[in-house]
Every structure is written in C-alpha cells, then in structure tokens.
Design a protein around this nucleic acid. Structure first.
Length: 108
DNA sequence: GCGCTGACTCCCC
DNA sequence: AGGGGAGCCAGCG
C-alpha cells in the first residue's frame, strides 16, 4: 500500500512554511516576500491563509510575517500575541503596530 | 457552480 | 493620513 501523492496545495503549503521557517529570529518578512521566496509571486493571501491555520504547536514562527511595509495585519487576540513575541526577540513594534523594515526586515 | 470573505498588495484621489 | 477600488484565489456555505 502506497501513501497518497501530496496534492499541489500540500506542496505549496510546505514551501511556504519552509520559507517562514527560514526567517531568522529577530527579523521579519512580509506576506508578499514569503510568497515570492516560495516561488509563488503574487500569492501573499495564500501565505496569510496558510499561517492563519497554524496551531501554537506547529513550531512555525508565524509572528515574523507582517503586511507590506511592516504593518501587523493580524487582528484580535493574536495581534497582541504577535507584538509580544516579536518584542521578546528584540523586534521593536510601535504602538500602532508598525515595524521598521530598514532595521528588522529580512533582507535588511 | 456561485457568491462572499479575507492574517494581501498596489494604485489613485 | 486615510479611504476606495481592483486583482488576486482558496475555503466555505
């Protein structure tokens, strides 16, 4: 008995998570950046959907992914958690939920 | 199959 | 600074 072939969706998801996993501690990247790095240019929303479904036990640093320009896009309870996790690793988050990409962006 | 909804991004006013 | 609109497309009812 052979296992089922991973679907295209599964492969996209794995590529996305691999990219997020490669963001160094203390740096951040935008949804669009992650999509491009994963070979999925223009698919920022897919990155957002993928991260949204992650559980705390996933081990993926979802909080390092922000909206374009370094804006926190997450709402509700997860928003404050994201800011807390970022600050814990040295990333400055403004009261408005902004991160300076020149200082903390993945690509510097 | 269809319409709606976004953890998106750009562009224009 | 902020709002509207468009392109995007997978998940869900």
């Amino acid at each position: 008995m052979r296992v089922q072939e991973p679907s295209a969706a599964d492969l996209r998801r794995e590529r996305i998570l691999a990219v997020v996993d490669s963001i160094p501690r203390g740096r951040v990247a935008s949804y669009g950046d992650v999509a491009r790095e994963a070979g999925l240019p223009g698919r920022a929303r897919l990155v957002g959907r993928t991260l949204r479904g992650l559980g705390a036990r996933s081990g993926i640093a979802w909080w390092r992914v922000l909206g374009a320009g370094g804006v926190l896009r997450v709402g509700g309870a997860a928003r404050s958690e994201q800011a807390r996790r970022l600050r814990r690793e040295g990333v400055e988050v403004s009261a408005r939920g902004r991160v300076d990409l020149a200082q903390f962006g993945w690509m510097g």
